[in-house]
Amino acid sequence: MDICVLVMEGTNNEAETSHSLAAVGLTPHIVIIRELIAGKYSLHQFNGLVIPGGFSAGDYVRSGAIFAAYLRPLLPDLRSLIADGWPVLGICNGFQILVELGVLPDCKENDETPGPTAILTRNSSARFECRAVSLRCEQINLFTRGLKRGEIIELPAAHAEGRFVTSTKILEEITTTGQVAFRYVGPSIPAEYPYNPNGSLDDIAGLVNRQGNVLGIMPHPERAFYWYQQASWPRQQEVHHYGPGYPFFAGMAAYIKERE
């Protein structure tokens, strides 16, 4: 159960991500994008792919744009990994990369002309937003099978460019095809700042593809894998071993195990 944890210079969440994967019984392999391009590794040898958070290539040009440009020649391999049903998870910068690549949102337009149909751009607050946020699980897929639809979880967010922007047409398509995986939640709908930390359209915090095996999420499940990693844990009455980020990885492991 080998998982490719794909990194380049500036990625900085590969340790937490690999730890989380290993803790649920998967075998993470930290692969540098250049090694994939050079053919030292192939995406076909893995049972899944995780693109961790960070600031790949210094977030130059736009966050995720340079990583996505490196990955673009390998898009056929990535598409076949997805079509074969293996899980692909993009966290924070990983989500930005999947959006820049045009893998998410998973729209008809991308099938014909590959390219981005959305963007995760500068937060409305013009700040780096680094704190816990509440998210509502909107859709059950392999990553969220440990959660309930409508369940609210708290995960740490840490980004300057997380505001999801797309056209009205694409928004309608992703809504009607059930691609919204997570929304930011506050006392009102839509969630206002600071509950929606970045000004994301329709409070979108995470997207899943039509097939349900590619998830992109701005907040960090790997930083809330254990209970004590949550900002609010000393105030909570219940104490558990695992935190709200655990189901994402456990779901991935269970799904891969079922397939093998």
Binding site: V61, A65, A69, G115, P116, I119, T121, V165, T166, S167
Partner: peptide, 10 residues
């Protein structure tokens, strides 16, 4: 521009 510098969405 199309390959890298511009995201035509915004």
């Amino acid at each position: 521009c199309e390959a890298l510098l511009v995201n035509p969405v915004i």
